[in-house]
Amino acid sequence: MDDSRNLMVADTRSRYRLLSQSTVWWIGAAAACLGLLLLTVILSLVAQNGGAIRHGNKPQVCLMECENLVYNLTKDKDALRDERDQLRINASNLTKAIEVLQSQYNTVSASRDKLQEDVRRLNVSREDQLCPQGLMPFNNKCYFASAKGAAKTWEDSRKDCLERRADLVIITTKEELDFVTNLCSRTWIGLSDTQQEGKWKWVDGTDLVGVGNWHTGEPNDIGNEDCVEISPSDGKWNDVPCTEKLSWICMVP
């Protein structure tokens, strides 16, 4: 009976030992499963949070870039506005400067015109003062035209001029030629070749410069023509005998 009891006890202990080992295994397995499940959850949470962080950074980066763009555009706008304002100031200054210059120009022009008029009056006055009574001023010279119908030889005409402290007219410019041509009809001028045939000289001793203002075919010295007359129609010259009687023009240099 004791032996049977011992066998029962041993069998019970063996069963208890097997049950304990099985329980421990299941507990270990359950713990392992729980650990794996927890790790999976943790990894999942980490992955979700990481994605959220990553996705959350994109709007923030975009916002920062937009803010930088707006800042740069604002700076550019301000710079352009300042440049525009400066250009307006420069344009205003230039306009004022132009107005000042225009005013100065108008003043100078008015002064110039007044001075020119004063000079003209002074020249006229000077010519009037330079020319004795009965003589006409022209280009700072004085002229005398013989009376209408009066006529003298070339020598007598010159004598009359010398008595007036003048001499027969010397023509050296186109303006002077036109002036003399309009004074009277056929008239003596102070040109001759009495000293040397073909050597035309003015009464002041100077030689005729250039070809002169002769009529076509003149001078031809037909009949000892040593003195020169001027035609009133065209101002052309012609050599005629010095003894011919014509009107004359005197000139005071």
Results as ranks from 00 to 15, higher is better:
F138H: 10
C66A: 11
S92C: 09
C161W: 00
Q104S: 15
Q60Y: 10
K96T: 07
S125A: 12
I170L: 13
P132M: 01
R84V: 10
K148P: 10
K77T: 00
N139V: 07
Q102S: 13
K96W: 00
A91C: 08
A147M: 05
F138R: 05
L63F: 01
G56P: 04
K148L: 13
D167C: 06
R158N: 12
T95A: 14
L135D: 00
R54G: 09
L69D: 12
N68Y: 05
I53A: 11
T107V: 04
T74C: 06
S109K: 13
R121M: 13
C142G: 03
E127K: 06
F138M: 04
P137Y: 07
D113W: 00
Q102R: 15
R126S: 10
A79M: 05
R88E: 15
W154D: 08
A79P: 06
A166W: 03
C142L: 02
L63Y: 09
K152F: 08
V108I: 09
G134Y: 07
Y71N: 13
D113T: 09
Q116L: 07
H55T: 05
I98R: 14
D118I: 11
Q133T: 01
L135I: 03
E163T: 08
K114M: 10
T153A: 02
L69P: 00
R54H: 09
A150W: 07
C142F: 02
N93D: 14
Q86A: 12
A97H: 03
M64R: 10
S109E: 10
S157R: 08
R121V: 10
W154G: 00
P137D: 09
L135E: 06
V108T: 15
A150N: 02
T74W: 01
M64A: 13
K96E: 10
L73T: 04
S109P: 02
L101C: 03
G56F: 00
R126C: 00
I98D: 14
L87H: 03
I89R: 11
E117M: 07
A150E: 05
L168K: 01
D160W: 00
M136S: 12
A79C: 00
R164Y: 01
R121A: 13
S111C: 06
N93E: 12
D118H: 11
Q116F: 08
Y105G: 03
A79D: 09
C161I: 07
V119F: 09
G56W: 04
C142Q: 04
K58R: 10
G149K: 06
K58E: 12
V61A: 15
L115C: 09
D85F: 08
L63E: 15
S146W: 00
E83F: 06
I89Q: 15
